Amino acid sequence: MLDPLGADTQGAAIISVRDVEKTYGSGAGRFDALRGVSLDIREGESLAIVGKSGSGKSTLMHVLALLDEPTAGTVLLDRRNAKELRSSELNRARNKTFGFVFQQFFLTPTQTVLENVMLPLTIAGMPNRARRAQAMAALEQLELADKAKNKATDLSGGQKQRVVIARALVNHPRIIFADEPTGNLDTATGRTVEDILFTLNREQGITLVIVTHDDDLAARCDRRIQIQDGRILEEATR
């Protein structure tokens, strides 16, 4: 069955985008990063967005994660138009509905591992004792409890990425957005990080959206879309 937007109603779409465009600059300097993209992301699936550098894949992730507004088109979160969300609702979605794992880690080097993982809970206004307990639980899940008092600078690349995953998990998100999550890691460590992400997807039902140029990583996802010149070139299901 199709809804009025043309989407299959079997299995709820957490995020839907319709005819999304994203343009930077104007005149001779104009760059069309997205050109009429339509896509549904469904509860519990794993989705890979692949494409060459400059294809628009990271821009699409930023739009899906409500980190950037499209120039044209519609973004729906749980069937609600993102343009209708108040600033507080947008911030709550970014803080609680979504978790983020980036290639660059974005850890605060002068803070402890525990303090880095607590950051989303601090932003959410959770009391100190509760946020420490919840952050420690996330670290234990990633087998990093023994590193809680270490500074982020004292960790290996693989440990830093596991801390980033713990921080993404700490608010029990429905979706994890991962932008080149293994790009800075050696093959063996990258595989470990992949296994963690797909275990969370499989065992906890967390929806996983991965932006990558790694074909092997993309092949592990339920669905793969290829972006080229701001358009979806092809889509494949595993």
Results as ranks from 00 to 15, higher is better:
144 L>G: 15
144 L>F: 12
144 L>R: 02
144 L>P: 04
145 A>T: 02
146 D>Y: 11
146 D>N: 08
146 D>A: 15
147 K>N: 11
147 K>M: 11
147 K>W: 14
148 A>G: 09
148 A>Q: 11
149 K>I: 14
149 K>R: 11
151 K>D: 01
151 K>W: 07
151 K>R: 07
151 K>T: 15
152 A>N: 09
152 A>F: 03
152 A>I: 12
153 T>I: 10
153 T>V: 11
154 D>H: 13
154 D>K: 09
154 D>M: 11
155 L>N: 06
156 S>K: 00
158 G>P: 03
159 Q>Y: 04
160 K>Y: 00
161 Q>P: 02
163 V>R: 13
163 V>A: 07
163 V>S: 09
163 V>T: 03
163 V>N: 06
164 V>E: 02
164 V>C: 07
164 V>S: 07
165 I>F: 00
165 I>C: 01
166 A>G: 13
166 A>F: 13
166 A>V: 04
166 A>Q: 09
167 R>E: 08
167 R>D: 03
167 R>T: 05
168 A>L: 04
169 L>K: 11
170 V>E: 05
170 V>I: 04
171 N>L: 03
171 N>R: 12
171 N>I: 10
171 N>D: 01
172 H>W: 03
174 R>P: 07
175 I>L: 08
175 I>C: 14
176 I>L: 12
177 F>T: 13
177 F>K: 15
177 F>H: 08
178 A>V: 06
179 D>P: 05
180 E>W: 07
180 E>G: 12
180 E>M: 06
180 E>T: 06
181 P>C: 10
181 P>H: 05
181 P>A: 10
